[in-house]
Computed example of a mutant assay.
Amino acid sequence: MHAERTSAVSAHRLGVFSDAVIAVIMTVMVLELKAPEHADFSALWPLWHTVVSYAVSYLFIAIIWINHHYLMSLVGPPTLRLIWFNFAHLFLVSFLPFATAWIARTQLASAPVVFYAALFVCVDIAFNVFEREVLRRADASQVPARARRMARRRSLAALAIFAVATVVAFVAPRLAFGLICGALLLHLWPEFSNGRP
């Protein structure tokens, strides 16, 4: 009984810490939004790159949090290995405000979009490793085999699109940005969330 309580508290602490880090990342990102100096609506138009890049990055962080939330509900006693995977994933996510600000300020120029797409690749790889570790330890009754297969296929498809976007960004950064947006749609609904709050 005590061991079960300890493992639950440990898993809860890992989830709470991750939530706090993600909240800080979102706060840092929103601080990059600067209001226009002129008091008319036409002053907003030059900022569309900032708004779009912020919206896409915000969606990405929301997807990360949602998927992380459902994965954490499957975690039993968190191993040191799982904790380090989580830290690696959060480390990469922490670069998102920097990457978002760069593509916004350069109006989706090639090099910043290459960096942005490559960051998505790295974050997705880290998440795939974390997801695989959690699902490997999860009970079959919690996550059926079909859900595991679908989650794996979805993750690999999104990763492939992010990788293609990284290459495409060298010659067509706006198209690459569009590919990133499309890949995010694959992560909107986690397969292992069925029947869970």
Rank of each mutant, 00 (worst) to 15 (best):
A172M: 12
L14Q: 12
L186H: 12
A111M: 14
I103E: 10
D139V: 00
E191R: 09
E32G: 11
A39C: 00
I161L: 09
L59D: 11
L71G: 03
P36W: 09
L82M: 03
P97K: 10
P197E: 14
F192Q: 06
W102D: 15
W45Q: 06
P144G: 14
S42N: 09
W45N: 04
R154P: 01
V113A: 03
T166E: 13
I22C: 01
N67H: 08
F98E: 08
L184I: 08
F115S: 06
H69P: 03
R13W: 02
W65A: 08
F87N: 05
A55C: 14
L108A: 06
R174C: 10
F95H: 12
V167N: 02
A165W: 05
F120L: 15
T79G: 04
A140S: 11
F41A: 15
V93T: 06
F95Y: 12
F177K: 05
A111Q: 13
M26P: 00
T27W: 07
G182N: 09
R153Y: 13
V21P: 09
A39M: 10
A88L: 08
P97L: 11
F60Q: 02
F170P: 01
D40S: 10
F87A: 12
L185F: 15
R174T: 08
I61Q: 01
R105T: 08
N67K: 10
P197R: 15
T50H: 05
A138H: 07
V167T: 05
V52C: 12
A8L: 13
V75Y: 01
A20V: 02
A169Y: 04
F17E: 06
V24S: 08
L92H: 09
A158C: 06
L33I: 13
R13N: 06
M150D: 15
F98R: 09
L59Y: 07
L175I: 13
T166Y: 09
A62C: 14
H187C: 10
T6K: 08
A104N: 11
V171E: 14
A43L: 11
R105S: 06
V52H: 11
S53N: 01
L59V: 10
E4D: 15
A62I: 09
L92Y: 10
A172W: 14
L179A: 12
N194F: 11
F162W: 12
A126I: 01
L31S: 05
V9F: 15
L92A: 14
L188F: 12
V30T: 00
D19M: 04
S57P: 08
E37Y: 02
V75W: 02
R153L: 15
C181P: 00
F87E: 04
P144A: 11
E4F: 09
A99D: 01
S193D: 13
L74G: 10
A158L: 03
R137M: 14
R196W: 04
A145F: 07
F85N: 01
A138W: 05
C181E: 13
Q107R: 14
T6G: 00
R105A: 02
P46S: 05
F130H: 08
F177A: 10
L92S: 13
T6S: 07
A62F: 11
V114F: 09
